[in-house]
């Protein structure tokens, strides 16, 4: 199991499109992925749960990955968050 903290920097936080991209990215891997924001926790393969966290800009989240491809999964997530979900400007 590996965990890493991130600050979400894109304009609207994990709202519709970014949340969808997050889930789509996570779905490519077999590992189980959880996102924690404060006390709340969500299954990152469920867009409904991800949206329910209400992650807004500048919120800190903790990503917990466990499974055989956890390293690659975390790398992909890291890339997605650091590229601001491909958001232009």
């Amino acid at each position: 199991m590996i965990t890493k903290r991130f600050v979400v920097k894109n304009k609207v936080g994990l709202h519709a499109r970014p949340a969808a991209e997050f889930v789509q990215t996570v779905n490519k891997f077999r590992s189980e992925v959880k996102i924690k924001k404060g006390e709340k926790e969500a299954n990152a393969k469920s867009i409904v749960e991800v949206l329910s966290l209400g992650v807004e800009r500048n919120n800190e989240i903790e990503v917990i990955v466990s499974g055989e491809d956890e390293k690659q999964a975390l790398e992909a997530i890291e890339h997605l968050i650091n590229s601001n979900f491909g958001e232009k400007e």
Partner: peptide
């Protein structure tokens, strides 16, 4: 059109 990508994920949401 992007919203429909989210619709597909809603449809297949494991929690639901």
């Amino acid at each position: 059109a992007e919203i429909f990508q989210a619709h597909i994920l809603f449809l297949k949401d494991p929690t639901i």
